[in-house]
Design a protein around this nucleic acid. Structure first.
Length: 733
DNA sequence: CTGGGAGGAT
DNA sequence: ATCCTCC
């Protein structure tokens, strides 16, 4: 099963060097048992299914009165998704509650913080698809991949007897490309399209859910083509249009598997578009990202993805969390932790397996860093406690809370005052209680709804919850009013402990005169900043010569702008990080000014987006902005601490200039609009601040500029036209 | 004050 | 054991 990449591996390149790429796409086989489809990766047919506005649909099923009305699903103060009635009046996913109400005063809201219903229905969908073939991989609650290659083979045999000319494609064809039934690849995809249609139909009639499907030759492409026609439609990608699909993306982050962090690192190399990535010399890429990741990314850029559809297993952990404005007493913590654990015990109980590890995570409040830095501690659950889980023993709850509180004390000194904004408990290391069984019997017996298992493994009552019909009724699984919340780490910089991590920045990218060893001791963040600043000045030098695409990179149309706007669960990082530069005035990266690098980075972070959309995303992106300036590294001047931006409550039509206040003095040049600045991605803000600071040698900041990098002397005077503030600390006198 | 979960790296 | 990245 480890051999899936073999037939495609370039000659002479050792396969074992291949990446363990991030994320679920392109991940190598994890080899847990299943023999992959016998058909080699050469001619696969993969279907990606993506349910329409999933949470809203589930709500409408559970409460049919909601049908036909504009409906929003709310979590905290956000509308995380909404039905199409609401979208009709431009309510958007991830819109703030306030804004949504403004757009649509009649918007009906339901609370979507308890995910139980969604989780259960989600597993029913997966189970239904598994009736077609076991090769179903879950990608989030509302998305599944299905490898239908073998089904296609059978289907083609059946078809073979009859007139091949009868074959046609079900649903749309990407690019409206002509179907050629003499082409075997076309025929296979056509068969796949019919299977996809049947799957969607089954999901609709039996579960009442609609969704989109994408049919293509691998996971990457099937996912990417899936959303071309929405809602409740499907699209086939024929091989001849693959490159068009890739080229239609305006930014690399639109490629599933390339997230914010990866994009950031690619930006360092001046890579922003698919085209950039395709054209980048692999040597350069490999030096920056390592061989394996580099090769993987470059494959992705061409739409290649040989990762198998790996059948999903039962969940490997259960977690529950709650976020709040403030929690500062131990008693309060204990109470909240108790609730979380009670909820988890319930879920774990229904699953049948028993957790052997418990983890407590929390988020400390910090004005500048509200969303950052979760901390966590975990420990084994003592076996005598494990055994009692599932027995009707209320002492288990108590004991687990006690353990959790110990973990809590490892992170928080309760003698001092504290302020946390999130608590999370996770049960993991799940093992079947039946010694002989590896996997959870309970799970498989109750496959359609793992959290609705048999109380004792033998009970059969639930096993037919798969059955068609009667499903709608099964929504009496009403929310049990318990809080289930989680917050994801905002896309931001790594934590401090990581700071010595060596990212192998290519030495050739370093400015002359910098001690490479010293450089390597810097936190990655700083390295990236140095490199990207550096890029501004010589981007056009080295990069251009090695990569002609630099100068000619042109704006992409956003013809497929809606293509990848998927469920809220997946658009978060894009929205948070990429949005709202509508009014900013970013210069060309080619410009020979110190801000050139910033220009490039901004381009990277600014997908072609319509102004309206950008504006609508602004509030979401503000989350990301709050995280600015956190993690000032020890080697960093105290500039950041002195410059904390705090957004003000935005009144309607809020103030332009006065919208932001500096908690202390913030050196925004007068030419800079504070609001626009505030809407920039945090990395850019940081870079800009450093930039501006460096141009102000008189600033008091410099007086306190530390010289913590013991190795080198503090460069004398900053060079007059110095674009990268940090650089000067390295320059030899 | 959006919630959850998988998996890799270290 | 803890952090990071992705969806």
């Amino acid at each position: 099963m480890e051999s899936s990449g073999e037939d495609e591996a370039a000659a002479g390149e050792p396969d074992w060097l291949l990446p363990a790429p991030h994320g679920r796409l392109g991940r190598g086989s994890t080899g847990h048992g299943k023999v992959m489809s016998s058909v080699s990766s050469l001619h696969r047919v993969v279907v990606h299914l993506d349910l329409d506005c999933y949470y809203a649909q589930v709500e409408m099923i559970c409460n049919p009165e909601l049908r036909g009305k504009p409906l929003g699903v709310q979590q905290k103060s956000y509308v995380i998704t909404c039905n199409y009635e609401a979208r009709g009046v431009s309510v958007k996913k991830l819109m703030s509650l306030k804004e949504a109400k403004k757009k649509c005063p009649e918007l009906v809201l339901v609370n979507g913080e308890d995910l139980t219903k969604y989780r259960e229905m989600s597993y029913k969908v997966t189970a239904l698809l598994e009736e077609f073939t076991p090769l179903v991989e879950r990608l989030g609650p509302d998305e599944n991949f299905v490898d239908v290659t073998e089904m296609v083979e059978k289907r083609l045999e059946e078809w073979g007897k009859d007139a091949t000319s009868q074959i046609s494609i079900s649903g749309h064809i990407y690019n409206n490309q002509a179907f050629n039934f003499h082409d075997s690849a076309h025929r296979r995809l056509a068969a796949g399209s019919h299977i996809a249609a049947e799957m969607r139909e089954a999901v609709r009639t039996r579960l009442g859910l609609t969704g989109c499907a994408g049919v293509a030759s691998n996971k990457l492409l099937s996912k990417m083509v899936c959303g071309t026609f929405k809602p409740n439609q499907q699209t086939v990608l024929l091989p001849e249009s693959q490159q068009d699909l890739m080229a239609s993306l305006d930014h690399i982050t639109k490629v599933p598997g390339i997230g914010f962090k990866t994009a950031q690192r690619l930006a360092v190399l001046g890579l922003f578009t698919i085209w950039d990535l395709q054209r980048c010399s692999s040597a350069v890429l490999e030096r920056e990202l390592g061989v394996s990741a580099a090769r993987h990314l470059q494959k992705l850029s061409y739409g290649e993805d040989d990762s198998p559809v790996t059948p999903s297993r039962p969940p490997q952990s259960f977690s529950d969390e709650d976020s709040f404005k403030k929690c500062s007493s131990e008693a309060e913590v204990k109470k909240k932790v108790g609730e979380l654990i009670a909820n988890l015990l319930d879920r774990v109980y229904k699953d049948g397996r028993k957790p052997h590890t418990i983890r407590l995570s929390l988020r400390k409040f910090s004005p500048t860093n509200k969303w950052l830095s979760r901390e966590s501690r975990q420990c084994p659950i003592p076996s005598h406690v494990v055994q009692r889980i599932g027995a009707d023993d209320s002492s288990v709850q108590t004991q687990l809370v006690a353990i959790a509180m110990k973990l809590f004390h490892k992170m928080i000194n309760v003698k001092a005052s504290f302020h946390i904004t999130l608590l999370s408990v996770c049960f993991s290391n799940l093992k079947s209680s039946l010694a002989s069984t590896k996997q959870s019997i309970g799970f498989y017996l109750t496959r359609p709804s793992p959290s609705k298992g048999s109380k004792l493994v033998q009970k059969m009552e639930d096993t037919e919850s798969v059955t068609p019909e009667g499903q709608m009724g099964s929504c009496e699984i009403l929310p049990d009013d318990r809080n289930t919340r989680v917050t994801q780490m905002p896309p931001e910089t790594p934590n401090l402990p990581e700071q010595t991590r060596d990212l192998e920045f290519p030495s050739h990218l370093l400015p002359a005169g910098i001690d490479y060893d010293v450089f390597n001791q810097l936190p990655r963040e700083i390295k990236e900043e140095i490199i990207s600043s550096q890029k501004g000045e010589r981007n056009t030098a080295a990069s251009v010569s090695s990569n002609p695409s630099f100068a000619s990179r042109e704006e992409r149309s956003d013809k497929a702008q809606d293509q990848m706007s998927h469920a809220p669960l997946h658009s978060r990082s894009t929205h948070q990080n990429m949005s709202s530069l509508a009014s900013s005035d970013i210069k060309s990266p080619i410009e020979a000014s110190p801000t050139a690098a910033l220009g490039s980075v901004c381009r990277c972070l600014l997908p072609s987006q319509r102004p309206l959309e950008a504006a609508e995303n602004a509030s979401a992106s503000k989350h990301a902005m709050h995280t600015a300036f956190k993690n000032s590294s020890p080697s960093r001047p105290p500039f950041h601490q002195a410059c904390v931006l705090e957004p003000q409550k935005q009144t309607d039509g809020g103030p332009q200039k006065g919208g932001w206040k500096g908690e202390s003095k913030c050196n925004l040049p007068s030419s800079v609009d504070a609001k626009t600045f505030s809407e920039l991605p945090t990395e850019i803000q940081k870079e800009l601040l450093v930039e501006w600071e460096s141009r102000e040698p008189v600033s008091k900041m410099h007086a306190t500029t530390p010289n913590k990098l013991k190795t080198k002397k503090p460069g004398g005077l900053p060079s007059p036209r110095q674009s990268n503030s940090l650089l000067r600390y390295f320059k030899p006198t």
